[in-house]
Simulated scan of single mutants.
Amino acid sequence: MPPDFWTVLFPAVTAAFLASIVEVVEAFTIVLAVGTTRGWRPAIAGTAAALAVLALIVLILGPALRFIQIQALQLVVGILLLLFGMGWLRKAVLRSAGVIALHDETLAYDAETAELRAQTGAPRTLQWIAGIAAFKAVLLEGLEVAFIVVAIGAGKGLLREASLGATAACALVLIVGAAMHKPLSQVPENTLKFGVGVMLSAFGVFWTGEGLGAEWPGADLALLPLAALFLLAGIGLARVARTTPAGSNA
């Protein structure tokens, strides 16, 4: 087992895996609504087309980043990961505090189903619209996953490992979703977003520092106290937000 397994490889793959679960669960809800309302042919076709586009993005963008000087790459990726991670962490904190509502997959499924059923037109046209809905849902949710996979892979040369983590998450959600045949509302999305936000923020600070030429005490082990810092800050902010009479909206 490599010495950086627990400090770099495991957190990177875990972040890609958990982030993918969150996004795939949300995309699956829309695809399920399309399949149960307009048939599985447009649902599968739209999903397959979106996955092909996402795979192409990862295959092109990932290797292309190797031609960028490593410190410049770490700086850019670090800043983007920090902004992205803080965005996830902020929403997770506000939802944990009750300032904004938790995401409800059952409500999302009902809303999408009602919208699809309200559409009128020729059967072929309705199937085409439904396929576009599935394509758009998978593509939009998948772009966040693709960004995380490419960003994590670019920072430490873990593109294959991060991709495997994301692929495993997709397979898990699809298997469970196909077996249950209903929205996966029991998945603790906000808890997962909180954890992913913590990890991405920690990676962001770490790689931004490396991009600026900083020497981290303990090298890769510095990721652990950085993650702990973001975790404690997130928990503390959630408690403060709960006791604040009027919270701000997301």
Score class of each variant (00 low, 15 high):
Thr113Ala: 15
Asp4His: 15
Leu192Ile: 14
Ile79Ala: 08
Gly165Val: 06
Ala52Asp: 14
Ala178Tyr: 13
Ala250Gly: 08
Ile30Asn: 00
Leu82Gln: 08
Leu164Ile: 15
Ala33Ile: 13
Phe203Ser: 04
Pro188Cys: 09
Glu189Ile: 11
Ala238Pro: 01
Ala246Glu: 13
Gln69Tyr: 12
Leu226Tyr: 05
Gly121Trp: 06
Ala16Asn: 08
Glu105Trp: 06
Pro11Tyr: 07
Leu9Thr: 15
Gly85Arg: 01
Leu200Glu: 03
Leu143Ser: 05
Ala45Gln: 13
Ile57Asp: 01
Ala166Asn: 02
Leu9Trp: 14
Gly78Ile: 05
Leu140Pro: 03
Glu189Trp: 00
Leu56Glu: 11
His181Arg: 15
Leu73Tyr: 02
Leu56Lys: 08
Glu144Ile: 03
Ala227Met: 04
Leu107Tyr: 02
Leu65Gln: 04
Ala146Pro: 05
Arg90Leu: 14
Ile129Ser: 09
Met180Pro: 00
Leu184Ala: 12
Val25Lys: 04
Gly78Arg: 02
Arg66Pro: 09
Ala50Lys: 01
Thr244Glu: 04
Ala154Phe: 12
Leu231Cys: 13
Gly157Tyr: 07
Arg117Phe: 06
Ile100Gln: 07
Phe206Glu: 05
Ala233Cys: 10
Phe203Ile: 10
Thr243Phe: 07
Ile132Val: 15
Thr243Tyr: 03
Glu105Asp: 09
Val25Pro: 04
Leu75Lys: 09
Ala178Cys: 11
Ala178Leu: 14
Leu139Asp: 03
Pro11Leu: 09
Phe10Val: 15
Ala228Ser: 10
Leu94Ile: 06
Leu116Met: 08
Ala33Tyr: 10
Val24Phe: 08
Val34Gln: 01
Val24Tyr: 00
Phe230Lys: 01
Lys136Pro: 00
Pro42Cys: 06
Gly142Phe: 05
Gly131Cys: 10
Leu94Tyr: 03
Leu81Arg: 02
Leu75Ala: 14
Ser96Ala: 04
Ala43Gln: 02
Val196Glu: 04
Ser201Cys: 07
Arg242Ile: 08
Ala118Met: 00
Phe206Ala: 09
Asp220Leu: 04
Gly142Ile: 07
Ala169Asp: 03
Thr113Met: 13
Leu59Thr: 10
Leu83Gln: 03
Gly153Cys: 01
Ala178Lys: 14
Leu89Ser: 04
Thr36Glu: 15
Leu139Pro: 00
Gly209Asp: 13
Val93His: 07
Gln186Cys: 00
Leu221Cys: 07
Ala114Lys: 12
Lys182Thr: 14
Leu80Trp: 10
Val22Gly: 01
Glu215Trp: 08
Ala15Phe: 05
Ile100Met: 11
Ser201Asp: 06
Ile57Glu: 02
Leu226His: 09
Ile60Lys: 09
Arg124Lys: 12
Lys182Gly: 12
Leu172Gln: 04
Glu141Met: 13
Gly78Ala: 08
Val53Tyr: 11
Val77Ser: 03
Leu94Val: 09
Trp6Ser: 12
Lys182Phe: 08
Leu54Cys: 12
Gly121Pro: 03
Ala250Val: 12
Phe67Arg: 00
Ile152Met: 07
Leu226Cys: 10
Phe17Trp: 03
Ala178Asn: 11
Met199Lys: 06
Ala16Leu: 11
Glu210Leu: 15
Phe194Ile: 06
Thr106Glu: 13
Thr167Gly: 10
Gly62Thr: 13
Ala27Thr: 10
Gly197Lys: 01
Phe5Pro: 06
Glu144Gln: 13
Ala122Met: 08
Leu192Trp: 07
Leu226Phe: 06
Leu158Met: 14
Asp110Ser: 12
Leu51Gly: 05
Leu184Met: 11
Ala33Gln: 05
Ala202Lys: 00
Val24Trp: 01
